[in-house]
Nucleic acid binder design. Structure first.
Lengths: 226, 226
DNA sequence: ACGCCACCTTGATATTCATCAAGCGGCATC
DNA sequence: GATGCCGCTTGATGAATATCAAGGTGGCGT
């Protein structure tokens, strides 16, 4: 049982530099959990004493406005961790809601315990700092996107990011409504933007199936050149 | 000379847990620099091999869109560091522009050197991780603000954050145009929002001098209750 | 004190996007 | 196969904010 956990954890960079003894200890304190589709993991404001590694599935991180509007901050997919940066705060509370988009398996790790172990693994500290650094860069890019770019730009660049390099055809792996919120547009607007891109002959969409016809034009849209 | 630098650095948490020898070494490799009003420090995309501590003045961090629009990400004031999180990235490039808003003094520190020193000061690692953690939380709050709140909300909460707890009168310490960009509204819109708040009797503004008449009402606006 | 310049304000208009309301279509259930 | 639900789409309208275009206004140097 603990072996299965170890096996999972070893997949992730954060655990790569631990000694076997440390990994054992981490695995002993870790728990495997399964979530159904739509099942919440934690809510914004809950005390944050654990962080998570996604073995399989997709976890939606979102925030709720007082009026009840939801903004999806990110979708975490298999092989990634989340909430690990909270380990270092004083009275840590999760700043977001976490919900499974599809049936998912997670490993949950005790933050305090892991932090204690970090003191004996400076290499892991550095890995973790690199990780946080990238997240910071990502969030700054996100803010840039939100304040400097139109909805169309955001949709276009997201599609480009989703699309495999060498293949013009692919499937959207998350519901359009969720994707819309991720990009900070309403579902209606998202739909219209996609329609617009189709009418311009840049791509076509059938359900979740996307076919890009003119990648260059799509890149232009992503840059904001009408 | 190096003593002056040491004195400055000791003010900041990041250097609090270094041994005297480590602090000496950091100070030797550090440089003091002065910027005139409006003088750029680095540009978005420049190779990022140093980070900075603000001794006095204000540094504006901003991003530029392809069309030339500027979005102010943050204003760093005396006693704070910035760009330290880039230390852990591979081919680090500054993700923002940095410019002095007023004549400023900075200490610049060699990232690679400091990172090397970090290996011998796990305590400092933890301080740094706490620091990054807070920044992450701040950026998430920022994204929340941008996508879930109106311009008026953002202005109202910013004013509340600026205002001293116990005093209803204070001065805006940065130009309104810069503040507008910080809050992701155009200067015209910013001006109109302020006018609106004045017309509602919530506050009055004369130049940079702000007087809050009804703090409760301002808090309501900040929450989005019209 | 004068004039200049940068910053801010104000007004009129245009654009983007949200909201409201309705219809469509697939998919699961019965 | 009918029923109903949910997610998506489409249309019509409205609100928030940007843009364009003129004025203020204050600070600063001469």
């Amino acid at each position: 049982m603990s072996d299965e956990l170890k096996h999972h954890l070893q997949q992730h960079l954060l655990f790569a530099r631990l000694t076997p003894a440390q990994l054992d200890r981490a695995a002993q304190r870790a728990r495997l959990l399964k979530l159904d589709e739509g099942q919440p993991l934690f809510a914004q404001g809950d005390p944050a004493d654990r962080f998570f590694y996604v073995v399989s599935g997709q976890i939606k991180l979102s925030r709720l406005s007082p009026e009840g509007n939801e903004k999806v901050i990110d979708i975490v997919s298999a092989g990634n961790t989340f909430a690990e940066a909270l380990m270092f705060l004083e009275g840590p509370a999760y700043p977001v809601n976490a919900t499974a988009l599809v049936p998912s398996e997670l490993v949950s790790i005790d933050s305090r315990d892991f932090a204690a172990m970090l003191r004996d693994s400076i290499d892991t500290c550095f890995l973790l700092m690199g990780d946080m650094s990238q997240r910071l860069r990502g969030l700054i890019a996100e803010i840039d996107n939100l304040s400097l770019q139109s909805g169309t730009c955001r949709v276009a660049s997201y599609l480009l990011k989703m699309a495999p390099e060498d293949e013009d055809q692919f499937r959207l792996d998350i519901p359009k409504g969720v994707m819309a919120s991720r990009l900070s547009v309403k579902p209606e607007t998202f739909s219209r933007i996609l329609r617009n891109l189709q009418d311009s002959g840049i791509l076509s969409i059938k359900g979740a199936q996307v076919t890009i016809h003119d990648r260059d034009a799509l890149e232009d849209r992503a840059e904001g050149l009408t």
